[in-house]
Amino acid sequence: MAANADIFEEREAWRRPLTISAVLHVALFGSIFFYAAFFAGRSGGSWGNSGDDTGNAMSATLVTTVPLPANPQAKPENVLANESKGVTQSVPKPEEKDKTAIPIPDRNAKTKIKPSKQPPVTPTHEQPREVAKVSNVVPFGQGGPVSGPYGTFSAAGAKGGFGFNGAGGDFGTRFGWYVDAVRRKVSENWMKYEIDPSLSTTRRVYIYFEITRPGAPANIRIEQSSGIPSLDQSALRALQRIDTFGPLPPEYSGNRVAVEFWFDPPVRGQ
């Protein structure tokens, strides 16, 4: 036990090396500090500095600020264009050789090509296919409602102002002056200031009504709304203001005429 105690009691001379070490460290740090303070900024150039100290330096962009998706989100699969090869396979069309083509001599150009014994073939061009003329084609923007009796309409005259159909079917041709009078009268009684002035798109409202034998409008209703209440109401009121269009022509045998009247509002800025 005493020997062990002696070991612990032995004391080495630590004081001197520790002092030297501390001094050397202080000297080392001091020299570094001194160098940095007096020499570091005076040699070399600053990166990105063009020599102008007014601040045109490029600034390195941190990678984290680049708007890259942090986590690519799973997108819904496009059912029309995806990488699946699908259940069918498209086979490239086999190249067809034109029988009338003259072969190009590839080896010996001096070899005369024997004329073909086949009779010359007259080139046949495919004639333009005749498109069947459909009588119920309606010009863009002038079509009526898709349902109802309008399907039987002949709209050939729509551009000119009216089309007609029916039993006699010739009211418009026989009494064009009456149709013009109806158009003028309705247009005169249509107060455009009743429409929402902020209207900026072209809309059309269709009003249905009938003209009785004495000329009074009857059964006035909106056949197809424009989606703009003020326009629909102004069109309805135009008809409601009218007492009579004048008696139907005496030569006309029918009792009443059905009219579909459309209203195109003036669009702001036009």
């Binding site: 029916g166 039993a167 029918g254």
Partner: peptide, 18 residues
């Protein structure tokens, strides 16, 4: 049925000249 209802039709509208 259309023939039975003896009634003529007119389609017309505004903006066709006054």
């Amino acid at each position: 049925a259309a023939t039975a209802t003896a009634q003529d039709w007119i389609r017309t509208g505004t903006g066709l000249g006054m």
